[in-house]
């Protein structure tokens, strides 16, 4: 994460997400997967108590994040401003 903060945030719509894992592959630095396969902000990416449904992404990850939005099979992702 750059010191000036995230370039954008990747919002996860949990009501749609089915944990297929494409986003975690495209954004390995930002996302891992939990016990059941659902995307989980990588350790250190989101402070505890912070909003885990809006994962910060860096400028370098923005293109991959947009790919994830496009390719998500459940249309569960969108980019939101920081």
């Amino acid at each position: 994460m750059s010191p000036i903060g995230p370039a954008a945030r990747l919002h996860i719509d949990w009501t749609r997400c089915d944990g297929r894992g494409l986003c975690a592959e495209l954004l390995p630095e930002a996302l891992t997967r939990d016990d059941w396969g659902y995307p989980l902000a990588a350790p250190g990416r989101v402070r505890s108590g912070a909003d885990k449904s809006n994962v910060p992404v860096t400028g370098a990850e923005l293109a991959a994040a947009m790919d994830a939005v496009k390719l998500c099979p459940l249309l569960a992702l969108r980019i939101t401003r920081p």
């Binding site: 949990w14 009501t15 997400c17 089915d18 944990g19 939990d34 016990d35 059941w36 396969g37 659902y38």
Partner: peptide, 12 residues
């Protein structure tokens, strides 16, 4: 039972 972490996490 809409959101995965709740659907599976709470029973766990």
């Amino acid at each position: 039972r809409q959101c995965g972490p709740c659907m599976f996490g709470l029973p766990a």
